[in-house]
Design a protein around this nucleic acid. Sequence first.
DNA 1: TATTATTTGAGAATAATTATCAATTAGCAT
DNA 2: ATGCTAATTGATAATTATTCTCAAATAATA
Lengths: 144, 144
Amino acid sequence: MADPQERFDIILKKLKESGHKITPQRIAIVKILADSQGHPSVENIYEHLKNDFPTMSLATVYRTVLLVKSLGEVLELGFPDGSNRYDANRPYPHPHVICVKCGKVIDPDISGLKDMQKEIAEETGFEILTHRLDFFGICSDCKN
Amino acid sequence: MADPQERFDIILKKLKESGHKITPQRIAIVKILADSQGHPSVENIYEHLKNDFPTMSLATVYRTVLLVKSLGEVLELGFPDGSNRYDANRPYPHPHVICVKCGKVIDPDISGLKDMQKEIAEETGFEILTHRLDFFGICSDCKN
DNA sequence: TATTATTTGAGAATAATTATCAATTAGCAT
DNA sequence: ATGCTAATTGATAATTATTCTCAAATAATA
């Protein structure tokens, strides 16, 4: 896991460099994204901020997440049930392990993915740009 | 690729065995799903059937796909952009290679996934039930 | 501090999917 | 073969997540 503070600084710097204004709302949303413990959804972020920002609009959360995504600084995890969760702590493609009971998301260490990507490219003739790898199961907490 | 006719027979049998009626609409939809060449979307299936079934409702396509899914006989591929595509030819989890230009979906042969799953289970303590692996890139046709 | 283009908040618009319900129909019993 | 009954269909309304709209507010600059 990257240092949330470092990720926060990087994303804010990118926002400035790309000519965007730094508003209190953006600071608050990026702070949560830069941490990304638990891989929050837009709704999660919104609920979390309603305490400190009673006037915060859901649209602003959507817009900010979209903006950070356009800068390549957040990874969007869309699921078949329509839910989207975000990870700006590690914005590059990486595997996830998701508990189907409690929704917990873990980032495992894994080996051999690079080889697999090369193998696929050779076999299919594709130029592979990115990938997505999720494992679904039941976490040790939920097994008990 | 499994034999579409065989897949069709299996799915129809499962429908009957689970106490569902065999309607002309279901036969037509299952026929397309059992083939799954190109991994069709609900909209694809609907458009394809409007010729033979001018009265076909989009809701019926959704319902039938959901029903076959509940029998475990179709794999749903949901993407972050909200689109869903279906594969009832191979309804078990398997990797996909998706062209980001033309939307083509290919099923590559791949090795080493089993090992990876075992590695993940040991590392995280999860009981892994299923997985999802997609590679996104540009196909050889679109490169030209 | 004044200026201006950007951003925000609130709610409307949109799009995909699901629910509703009267009319139809598949499959069974006769 | 026919009638019966519960399941299914088609049309459309409801729902839900996300995006759009636009007037009011505000960050960044001089």
